[in-house]
């Protein structure tokens, strides 16, 4: 499953969601991404890995979409394992992603 837009690419394969590029859409333009996450959740995977090591920038609307449409929805799936792969080279990731732990118990956040 793929989603491509202006400056970004999102793929889903083997329970891994990978996001490349920069995401700075207006709030209403994140609908496609919300639908994409909905599709992923509908498969009720036992584990999901969100790989954002190559996501250079994400705006506040994007943060909200990941938090609400992916993490909170995944939290409703029983015994799901959530893992986020991050990059140390992006300050916004270092500042923001650790706060995602508040949204789900046992979430694993890995920085490389």
């Amino acid at each position: 499953m793929n989603l491509e837009g202006d400056g970004y690419t999102i793929t889903y394969k083997d329970n891994i969601i990978t996001i490349f590029g920069k995401l700075s859409l207006m709030l209403e333009d994140y609908e496609e991404l919300e639908d994409f996450f909905e599709e992923v959740i509908r498969t009720e995977p036992s584990e999901i890995t969100l790989d954002i090591r190559n996501l250079e920038y994400l705006n506040s609307s994007g943060i909200k979409t990941i938090c609400v449409s992916l993490i909170l929805e995944a939290d409703d799936i029983e015994d799901i394992q959530m893992k986020i792969l991050c990059s140390n080279q992006y300050t916004w990731q270092k500042e923001t992603i650790p706060t995602f732990e508040d949204l789900m118990d046992d979430m694993e956040i890995v920085f490389e």
Binding site: N59, S60, I63, K64, C67, V68, I71, L72, D75, D76, W92, E95, T96, T99, F100, D102, L103
Partner: peptide
Amino acid sequence: NKLKRRISGLEKTLQIVTGYSGRT
């Protein structure tokens, strides 16, 4: 309980997003 959890999650999301927006 699910709704309560969701409301709490949304509150936390709001904190995350506003914190992020403030820094930006």
